[in-house]
Design a binder for these strands. Structure first.
Lengths: 112, 112
DNA sequence: TTGACACATTGATGAACATCAATGTATACT
DNA sequence: AGTATACATTGATGTTCATCAATGTGTCAA
């Protein structure tokens, strides 16, 4: 059962997702831990390291990534629980008649 | 079964949601048809009519609202199908290990 | 401790965007 | 035809934001 205190408001969630580079980073972080250098490499010159760090900070502020430090290297991965919660709440709020057919409503808090 | 041609890419979807006023308008349009004047009234002076028209245009470009004209009045409501599709695809892409427990995967296109 | 490495932070710059007053356009009424 | 209504569009303005070069901070290795 998800509770509100681990949540993120839906505007912040949308803002965190509202950038092409950030979604590309997120796709690379799905189900795997990568450090910053590896992420920069995956982006193949599209952006530089400070830009990646900037986006990682934004994602962290939105609670969409988990962090682990190992020596000098900082590893990131997606916070699937938070993402699934936000997606579920988005659907409940803006597509409630579809949501009731698609998702396990009892697992998502319905309070605003 | 949803198909890709009615879809919206997930960055555009997020950008459409990435504004406080727009989400407030969307909340008012959930499961009900309202014309522009009624939406302006619901916002209680927060923004003016041109701003509401601007946001409605953005939502329409993102395919998140349906439109109907009746005389001089233009009515809007949420496009729940498109919203549910985008939420489902977001979950499949960024929280796949949660999505497989929560949603009817067979109803959502998995192609990129 | 000195040098190299991994990453974060700062400051500057240009682009995207929300907002509104003013105006345009289409519809309805008389 | 003429006026009023409902909404869209335009142009201007201030803000938010993505990006990068330069620099700072912490960690490892010799």
């Amino acid at each position: 059962m998800y509770t509100l205190d681990m949540s993120v408001d839906l505007v912040s969630f949308a803002k965190a997702l509202a950038d092409d580079t950030r979604q590309e980073i997120m796709a690379h972080l799905c189900c795997v831990w990568l450090n910053v250098g590896e992420i920069v490499a995956k982006l193949e010159g599209k952006v530089n390291q400070p830009t990646v760090s900037h986006h990682l900070k934004k994602l962290q502020e939105a609670n969409l990534v988990l962090t682990r430090q190992d020596g000098r290297e900082h590893y990131y991965t997606l916070n699937e629980d938070a993402i699934a919660l936000c997606c579920g709440r988005l659907m409940l709020r803006f597509a409630p008649q579809r949501a009731e057919r698609l998702i396990r409503v009892e697992d998502i808090s319905t309070s605003t």
